[in-house]
């Protein structure tokens, strides 16, 4: 993946047009279908949304907006939950 890909919408040269995009979910590279949303990214990790929060490129995406927030090429999705600590 090259720097030039970052942030540009739509299918990328070098990938199959209209079929997939590259994102990172909790630091791991992942390919999701074109048109995938934050909700799809969460479903890669868990089927339960309870106690989970999402940041898309360092901004919180409220739970109610997961299904209406589309992902773009090279987006960084962080899916967090509470763990033992402190």
């Amino acid at each position: 993946m090259t720097k030039e890909d970052r942030g540009a919408p739509g299918p990328r040269q070098g990938s199959r047009p209209g079929t997939a995009m590259n994102v990172t979910i909790n630091g791991n590279p992942c390919r999701l279908p074109e048109g995938a949303t934050v909700a799809h990214a969460v479903e890669v990790l868990t089927s339960t949304a309870a106690g989970v929060a999402v940041a898309l490129n360092d901004e919180v995406v409220r739970r109610g907006a997961w299904r209406s927030t589309p992902l773009g090429e090279n987006d960084r999705v962080e899916v967090l939950t509470a763990v033992q600590g402190g």
């Binding site: 990790l45 962080e78 967090l80 939950t81 509470a82 763990v83 600590g85 402190g86």
Partner: peptide
Amino acid sequence: TVAMRRLDPSSRGSVLDVLRARGIKV
């Protein structure tokens, strides 16, 4: 208190369940 970390799909059980069962404020 609890910490916030990346969700680990392989982890079993949640500290939140323990706190909620005891009625402890998180």
